[in-house]
Design a protein around this nucleic acid. Structure first.
Ligand SMILES: [Zn+2]
Ligand SMILES: [Zn+2]
Ligand SMILES: [Zn+2]
Ligand SMILES: [Zn+2]
Lengths: 161, 161
DNA sequence: CTCGCTCATGTTATAAGATAACATGTCCGG
DNA sequence: CCGGACATGTTATCTTATAACATGAGCGAG
């Protein structure tokens, strides 16, 4: 992405997603501020999960005063709205490919990640069979499930050869 | 647990599990050293997942020189042998209730945790339906799965009331 | 016996991830 | 003009984890 007076500029596809996110936010009465927009753009521009401090390094190109709370607060906002997910195994963040579909309601409780340990790429899925199996297992234990973290590690098709 | 000249002493049930673990180690040609034994005992004595630095605090009662690597190395050893698992959501460690069953081969790739967000207790399960659903989802994506982290959060039977 | 290897641990330092607490500034309605 | 809501700035600290190098016990080859 490029640096301009207005902050970072991203690829056309990502700019389009940012526009959409901005629209969704204003429909909810919230704001995708320039800071939040930049953080989301950076996450979406990464082809791998990106850590908070890597985001911070990028942010500092345009925002001298950026500090950890700067990026964590933006990430909190974006995660609450389902634009971004955290991959627990990696302590890193990915953009949600279907953020527009579930409009502002975080589906993070029903998502699974496929993490390639070779190329580092992460694929998001929403697998009904896994969701059902998890719900049943929880029920069988008398457990009132709120959310589930499902992160599958291995080799992606390309890397498995 | 009590502190003696020999290090920490645990409850009889836990001492029995430590004995068993020691036997399993020596069958594999490894050693459950006093340090590793203490760390395992501390993990088993906790009714909740315990963090590395909490373990470290306990350890220092008997080992003045204990430092982060002391506990992380012991945990690495114990995890490799399946005596201990890490709960990723909590960055904390739990004892494996079935460590003796799978003798030295870490089943951590096929385990699920039920985490109660109220009382903090964690239950380990090995649910075939979840394992199968995860394997199928991976396969459908052309993904060669190595392991899966499945951590379910909610309220346990007691806490759900 | 002693050299050199392996393994376990000690020791020091730092990296990496996350949050607490308080300050500042903008916007907007009353 | 005041006061509250919200976003961000700022400083400090906390938690989690690893890197890198040092020490020392135990053991087998020669
Ligand atoms: Zn998503
Ligand atoms: Zn790959
Ligand atoms: Zn287990
Ligand atoms: Zn509970």
């Amino acid at each position: 992405m490029a640096v301009s007076e207005q902050g970072l500029t991203f690829s056309p596809e990502i700019e389009a997603r940012l526009e959409k996110a901005a629209r969704l936010c204003s429909e909810q009465g919230t704001t995708l501020t320039p800071l939040r927009r930049e953080v989301l753009g950076l996450v979406l521009s990464s082809d791998q999960p990106i850590g908070a401090y890597a985001l911070l390094d990028h942010l500092r190109r345009t925002r001298a005063g950026a500090a950890p709370p700067t990026v964590y607060r933006a990430l909190d906002f974006l995660r609450e709205r389902g634009f971004v997910h955290k991959v627990e195994r990696l302590n890193a963040f990915v953009g949600c490919p279907s953020a527009a579909d579930h409009v502002g309601h975080d589906h993070g409780h029903a998502v699974q990640f496929l993490i390639c340990t070779r190329c580092g790429r992460v694929t998001e899925t929403e697998d009904e069979a896994i969701i059902a199996a998890v719900a049943q297992a929880a029920e069988r234990h008398g457990f009132r499930q709120m959310r589930a973290t499902v992160e599958i590690e291995g080799l992606c098709r390309a890397c498995a050869g």
